[in-house]
Design a protein around this nucleic acid. Structure first.
Length: 465
DNA sequence: AAAAAAG
């Protein structure tokens, strides 16, 4: 077991539970009852205060602030005007087509924009407006009089960083004086001159390179630190080390904002250790996306069988776009070349590609020039493509030990059924092992995964409705 | 196993 897990266990976390919303049903509902996928441990829930129904959870600290301060950030807002943003930012919000705040924005924005700044750990499916929420916080805190980076945003992948940057550029389109820069693979930098842009959005390696190794900007001057997909970023296996090195260099005055669709208990405990006095926001079931996604499984004999199933499904994809997830880059490449040989038009995206290629592929898929995208876990998280109606798991997501990786599954099939639309997830099964993984996933989410016979055209027809 | 880095 790693160090931080031990620290998390040793740490004495005070226990309290306060129902902030007396009008709502009795606090018995705070117990993790009906299938809440990510709230595994009821004890975890009991450490927190929850505004029932709204899914807002708060720690004691921010409650204290609320009691002292009548303009407390705990009140949610129903309009963007109520946030008292700079007019240029408000204009940007409306230009993007947002009229009223989404649920996560309603509850998170007052805290994100509060003065003095408040730290936050937020859980919300992407596609519910969380990117826009933290981008707004990033933009609103920039002091354009200073020509050095003041805002850092870290993403786990190249694609996600670019996507976030695009949201920031659009939302800040009427604030031309705010400068933004990507710190990602392929970005050239002049090692002799300091970085002058206000906002850096990027991946951990490049950010460390520029900030620590090349000292092109001062981490101590960062005022806002955003960690997107925070759970993968701080999970022991992943980008943990790099993120922690960056985190350690930040000033204690820096506002820390952690966002993720899911947090398991260990990761949440760790997040609470490194984010001082956080406001914790959790968006509950009604906006988690499994409900509007129909899940299926297909029995296949082997890899070839899976390929045949894909071919059968391919015919009914005309309604929208599809993403096919494979376990390895190799499988993805194999599948793509096989389908291409058979005359199907498909695109592949994996870490095998150069950043330029990755950008081009995603562009083609976004614009609808490609209907089918074959990829790896690189795209399992956070990428918003509205027209995706089908997600196929060519390989089910498993962890290092080969057990069901329910978190990744949730993220993957969350690529469809976004923004309240309905979606379809199809899992290809070959043999006992993958069947048991499938059963484990079904059990975990308490959502039926229905048998689908892809050799039967009528059966495939049915999946649309 | 994948991803992030100049690796």
């Amino acid at each position: 077991m790693t160090d931080w897990v031990k620290i998390a266990e040793d740490q004495e976390i005070p226990k309290f539970k306060i129902d902030l919303n007396a009008d709502e049903p009795a606090p018995t509902t705070t117990a993790s009852k009906d299938n809440e996928p990510d709230v595994a441990d009821p004890a975890e829930t009991s450490l927190l205060i929850k505004i029932l129904g709204k899914g807002l959870v708060n720690t004691k600290q921010s409650l204290d602030i609320q009691q002292k301060n009548p303009n407390s950030p705990l009140h949610s807002v129903k309009t963007f005007e109520a946030l008292h943003l700079k007019p240029e930012l408000l204009k940007g919000i409306y230009a993007m087509g947002f009229n009223t705040p989404s649920k996560i924005q309603e509850t998170a924005l007052p805290t994100l924009l509060a003065d003095p700044p408040q730290n936050m750990i937020a859980q919300s499916q992407s596609g519910t407006g969380k990117t826009a929420a933290f981008v707004l916080a990033m933009l609103s805190r920039v002091n354009v009089a200073l020509d050095h980076p003041q805002v850092l945003c870290l993403s786990p992948t190249y694609e996600l960083a670019i996507q976030t940057g695009e949201v920031a550029a659009r939302m800040g389109q009427f604030c031309p004086e705010i400068k933004l820069r990507f710190a990602v693979r392929g970005e050239e930098v002049d090692r002799n001159s300091k970085i002058t842009e206000h906002i850096l959005i990027g991946t951990p390696g490049k950010m460390l390179d520029w900030g620590l190794k090349m000292r092109l900007f001062d981490m101590k001057k960062i005022r806002v630190f955003v960690l997107d997909e925070a759970d993968v970023m701080i999970a022991t296996q992943g980008h943990h080390d790099q993120c922690i090195r960056i985190h350690k260099m930040l000033s204690s005055q820096c506002q820390m904002l952690f966002f993720s669709a899911t947090y398991d208990k260990e990761v949440m405990d760790f997040a609470r250790l490194i984010v001082p006095e956080p406001t914790i926001i959790r968006l509950m079931r009604e906006e988690e996306s499994l409900d509007n996604i129909k899940q299926y499984y297909v029995n296949c004999k082997n890899e070839e069988g899976k390929y045949n199933a894909i071919q059968n499904i391919y015919g009914c994809i005309s309604i929208g776009q599809a993403i096919i997830f494979c376990h390895t880059r190799k499988t993805a490449a194999w599948l793509a070349s096989k389908m291409t040989t058979d005359g199907h038009s498909v695109a592949v995206l994996s870490g095998d590609l150069t950043v330029e290629q990755r950008l081009a592929v995603l562009d083609r898929f976004r614009s609808g020039q490609e209907k089918v995208l074959i990829t790896t876990n690189v795209l399992s998280r956070g990428i918003d493509i509205e027209q995706v109606t089908i997600v196929v798991n060519f390989d089910l997501p498993v962890d290092l030990r080969g057990n069901a990786d329910c978190e990744t599954y949730l993220h993957r099939i969350g690529r469809t059924g976004r923004f309240g639309k309905s979606g379809i997830a199809i899992n290809l099964i070959d043999g006992e092992k993958s069947m048991s993984v499938c059963r484990a996933i079904e059990k975990h989410f308490q959502k039926d995964i229905i048998y689908l016979n892809t050799d039967n055209a009528d059966d495939i027809e049915k999946i649309g409705n």
